[in-house]
Amino acid sequence: MSKPTTSRGESIARMLPALDYSKIGISILVMVFFVFFISPIWTGLVTAFKTTGAVTGTTPFVPPGTEGFTLEKWTTAIDYLSTGLINSFIMTIPSTILCVALGSTAAYGLTLVDWHRRARFAVLVLFMFGIFIPYQAVLVPLSDFWINIFAVDGTMAFLGDLPFFTERHSRLFAVTVTHVVYGIPICMLLFRGYYVALSDELVEAAKIDGASITSIYRDIVLPLSKPMIGVVFIYQFTMIWNEFLFSLTLIGSSNSPAATVTLVLSGLGSDLSGVDFGLRMAGAFVAALPTIIIYVLFAEQFAEGLASDN
């Protein structure tokens, strides 16, 4: 029998991690960032539940008391934004799906299909240009195109005969198509990174199995792209949903029946009597809700896609 060579206190001290200053530093940094990011959201959220009086009467990040609490701002905001929300969905869903579909097929054609190497590179360069075009630079030609060259107001006038739609929705159609066009390059690039990493032997095995270019895409590449589709879908949905400049240029007014939610939001809660901060905050949260829901729905695929991309 051997005796324990250390006392009880010593052995407990040994089990505790040593005081590590870098760990403490990291913890503090994380907390600082947490506060930095969370405080505006928190402040916005509590403001949305305050009456106009409470907004001016209380400190911004302090929750409202019982008399300062109201849900009225939320109901007003939902009421005010509902058409804009519907318009945004009408625009965002088809354009996102088209961006994903076209981006993925373009990336497939530029990576896994074997054709003229130089021509392939030239096309890739064109896509790269597409990514870096500043939106501000194309606003004038863009509106010129949709109003004069392809006069969307005239050609899409039949939209007025459909339920819910009005003639002004032709402009929403123009915004949708514009988003598809400007979204394809970045979607292509995201898919390309994924396809370049995909094993060549897989595609070659399918070729030897007798699959054509289209069936290789449909049977092999597309099912394997699922995680990336999640990533691109979330990314593109958020981009298009939050986009303001194209809507402003092509649809114009927040009073238009075709106005998207971002456009309506810009006019929400400000009139001659001043700014209604509670309403603006509630409106901002309502407008952001769909993107949050999309994140939650696709979170698993998103994480998987990001992990497999690296």
Binding site: E201, L202, E204, K207, I208, G210, D219
Partner: peptide, 18 residues
């Protein structure tokens, strides 16, 4: 390849994972 009537086994096996 599909007109040749050959079959190939790859080093990485290249099985379709899905």
């Amino acid at each position: 390849p599909q007109e040749r009537d050959i079959a190939m086994v790859f080093q990485s096996y290249a099985l379709y994972p899905h």
